[in-house]
Computed example of a mutant assay.
Amino acid sequence: MTEYLTNYMKYIQDRLEKCSDSAELDEIMAEHMDKIAFMQHERIVHFLVTMMFALILAIFIAVLVFTSNIPVLLLVTMILVLLLFYIKHYYFLENTVQKMYRVYDGILEKQKKLKESRK
């Protein structure tokens, strides 16, 4: 997903820089709105999974505190590592979706400028 989003952001920026036609800009806007919707869904799913892992980690830490069991310590360590990777990925998704919002604003601005130049 990281590579996909990175490539998409480069693609959309290149396409925006080369675009000077209002119809093409409308097409770019429609495509970008679809991508934003997909990534918002992806972001919500990853948020829920991250919170689930955080809850599971808290439960197992509580079990570890009360039992001092070595296998539980191993399980806590594994869940903690997984949670760190989920947080890293969620952070990337969150920041990229916010960049997508800024690109959306840029598209709106470019549409406004094209409409003003035709007057």
Score class of each variant (00 low, 15 high):
76 V>M: 01
69 N>E: 11
78 M>R: 09
37 A>C: 06
24 E>C: 12
86 Y>T: 08
51 M>P: 10
96 T>H: 05
42 E>A: 15
24 E>D: 07
66 F>H: 11
75 L>M: 08
22 S>H: 06
7 N>D: 02
12 I>M: 02
23 A>N: 04
93 L>Q: 01
104 Y>T: 05
79 I>E: 04
112 K>P: 12
59 I>A: 13
90 Y>N: 08
79 I>M: 02
74 L>Y: 09
109 E>A: 06
28 I>L: 11
101 Y>W: 12
102 R>M: 00
53 F>K: 01
112 K>I: 02
56 I>P: 03
95 N>I: 10
77 T>Q: 04
108 L>T: 05
69 N>P: 12
113 K>W: 00
74 L>C: 07
91 Y>S: 09
79 I>T: 03
33 M>H: 13
115 K>Q: 13
53 F>A: 10
78 M>S: 05
71 P>C: 04
32 H>D: 11
31 E>F: 00
91 Y>M: 14
103 V>H: 02
96 T>L: 03
45 V>L: 14
45 V>I: 13
39 M>V: 10
31 E>C: 05
119 K>G: 12
27 E>Y: 01
111 Q>N: 10
74 L>Q: 08
63 V>Y: 13
19 C>P: 09
65 V>G: 10
26 D>W: 02
41 H>R: 15
18 K>W: 00
72 V>R: 04
54 A>H: 06
74 L>V: 10
82 L>F: 11
26 D>A: 01
14 D>L: 07
57 L>P: 05
42 E>G: 05
69 N>Y: 08
68 S>G: 07
57 L>A: 07
75 L>H: 03
90 Y>A: 09
119 K>C: 03
80 L>P: 04
17 E>T: 14
78 M>W: 15
87 I>C: 06
44 I>R: 15
115 K>C: 10
112 K>G: 09
27 E>T: 06
24 E>Y: 04
69 N>A: 03
